[in-house]
Simulated scan of single mutants.
Amino acid sequence: MADFLDWTLSMLSKSSFQTMEGTVVMNGMLQALAQLFKHGKREDCLPYAATVLECLDNCKLSESNQMVLRKLGMKLVQRLGMTFVKPKVAKWRYQRGCRSLAANLQAPGSVVQNQMMTVAANEADDEEEYDIPAEIENVVEQLLVGLKDKDTIVRWSAAKGIGRITGRLPKELADDVIGSLLDCFRFQNLLRHGCAKKEEEIVPNPSS
């Protein structure tokens, strides 16, 4: 695996998305890496994940005009993120309780209190067991940038990555990701309203 990764990263670093030949080469290398980190064992891929992420940063795929390259970049970034974090479902995630409202309301108060205490204890244990590498911050940042992409298919890939990675993070870090996500939406709304206001200023009202 090490020799293959050295070759693919070398080809990526030598190629440029500004030429047709470079675009074809980068397309193939990104697809190969994405499949490798999807089907490979985590313990085998983890030692090389940081190096691949650094090479991907240097490629600056977000500046490319090729939608396919930006999409593959998002796909590879999210799979690198899934490699960094352990395949574990966070205990803070919503769990469906009793389906019957009547049975739920008739449950003794002590039972409900015990359930709340159990959930709090599980969350505390969950926080202690997590060991999140520093590269996750870079991964999440790139995925948030992908959410602002002009092409829907790139935004889809970034959104899937955000959801999958956040579901494995501790509650505190997951809250930070959600906060950044909401800030992204606020920025988009401000930008949209600002553009609409500028358009109203430029285009005269026919009724006036």
Score class of each variant (00 low, 15 high):
9 L>R: 12
62 S>C: 03
129 E>V: 11
23 T>E: 04
95 Q>F: 00
139 V>Q: 03
184 C>H: 08
127 E>H: 13
82 M>W: 04
164 R>A: 02
128 E>F: 07
32 A>Q: 14
113 Q>L: 05
27 N>C: 09
175 D>T: 01
167 G>E: 15
139 V>Y: 01
5 L>Y: 06
74 M>G: 04
207 S>P: 00
11 M>R: 13
168 R>H: 05
76 L>W: 00
106 Q>N: 10
154 V>M: 08
54 E>I: 01
30 L>R: 03
100 S>C: 14
25 V>T: 12
113 Q>M: 08
22 G>D: 00
3 D>G: 09
101 L>T: 06
149 D>F: 03
186 R>K: 15
78 Q>V: 01
60 K>D: 11
45 C>F: 02
116 M>S: 07
105 L>M: 14
188 Q>P: 02
91 K>M: 09
108 P>A: 08
3 D>Q: 14
78 Q>L: 04
36 L>Q: 11
7 W>F: 02
7 W>Y: 06
187 F>T: 10
27 N>I: 05
15 S>T: 06
137 E>R: 09
114 N>R: 14
183 D>R: 15
157 S>H: 10
2 A>C: 05
63 E>K: 09
140 V>Q: 12
196 A>I: 07
129 E>N: 13
181 L>S: 07
75 K>M: 05
123 E>F: 07
166 T>F: 10
108 P>D: 05
123 E>V: 07
90 A>V: 02
174 A>D: 02
116 M>W: 12
18 Q>M: 13
123 E>M: 12
83 T>R: 05
73 G>E: 02
196 A>D: 14
172 E>N: 09
76 L>I: 08
71 K>I: 04
184 C>M: 14
63 E>S: 13
15 S>V: 03
116 M>N: 09
152 T>N: 15
195 C>L: 15
104 N>G: 05
156 W>V: 06
15 S>M: 07
192 R>S: 13
40 G>I: 14
190 L>A: 12
173 L>S: 03
60 K>R: 14
117 M>A: 08
71 K>H: 08
114 N>W: 12
90 A>G: 07
159 A>N: 08
126 D>L: 06
130 Y>Q: 09
103 A>I: 09
98 C>V: 06
46 L>G: 00
110 S>E: 07
147 L>M: 13
154 V>Y: 01
11 M>K: 15
90 A>D: 07
83 T>F: 03
171 K>I: 01
202 I>D: 10
82 M>S: 02
76 L>E: 04
